[in-house]
Simulated scan of single mutants.
Amino acid sequence: MPRTAPRQRAEGPFATRSASTRTDAPPLARTRPPVPPVDRSPKHLTVGHLLRQLQNLDLDLDQPIRLAINPDFPFAHYVGADVVVRNGTAFIADDGQEDYLPAGVRDALGWA
């Protein structure tokens, strides 16, 4: 049986190595993209979500509430005092325009 010359290892950027000899491979967990956090807020506000948001604020109970209306022409509107429930949905009326929406509120809402 004729002897063949030993195989030479490839060098350079196209060289291949077996997985067992690689020492520069990052751990598997670092190669996966990070999982984005789950947004637990509802697409449309629910009574429970509104209550949880208000309970987490450090507010005076006599502090007024306003609605931010219309990102293209932003105004602050009064919230009506009556809540009407029909077919499982709570309705709160707009009770008129107060003034322009403050710039800080527009910025926080991404309406700037």
Rank of each mutant, 00 (worst) to 15 (best):
P6T: 07
P6S: 04
Q8L: 14
Q8P: 10
R9P: 13
A10L: 11
A10V: 09
G12N: 01
F14E: 13
F14G: 11
F14A: 13
A15R: 06
A15S: 04
T16V: 11
R17Q: 15
S18N: 12
A19I: 10
A19V: 09
S20H: 03
S20K: 07
S20D: 12
T21I: 10
T21G: 06
R22S: 14
D24H: 01
A25R: 13
A29F: 09
R30D: 14
R30Q: 05
R32W: 10
P34A: 04
V35F: 07
V35W: 08
P37C: 00
V38C: 04
D39V: 10
R40G: 13
R40M: 09
P42Q: 03
K43S: 07
K43P: 06
K43D: 10
K43N: 06
T46L: 02
G48F: 01
G48A: 06
H49Y: 05
H49M: 05
H49N: 10
L50H: 01
L50T: 01
L51K: 07
L54H: 01
Q55T: 09
N56D: 15
N56V: 07
L59F: 11
D60K: 03
D62I: 02
Q63D: 12
Q63H: 06
P64D: 00
P64H: 00
I65M: 15
I65R: 14
I69Q: 06
N70S: 09
P71W: 04
D72Y: 13
D72W: 08
P74I: 02
A76L: 15
V79Y: 06
V79N: 06
A81Y: 06
D82W: 02
V83F: 02
V83G: 00
V83H: 03
V83L: 01
V84P: 05
V84E: 13
N87D: 14
T89V: 10
T89I: 08
T89R: 08
T89E: 06
A90D: 04
A90L: 02
A90W: 00
F91G: 02
F91H: 07
A93E: 15
D94T: 10
D94W: 06
G96T: 03
G96H: 01
Q97F: 07
Q97C: 13
Y100H: 14
Y100V: 13
L101R: 01
P102F: 05
P102T: 03
A103I: 04
G104Q: 14
G104W: 08
V105W: 04
R106H: 04
R106Q: 15
D107M: 05
W111G: 03
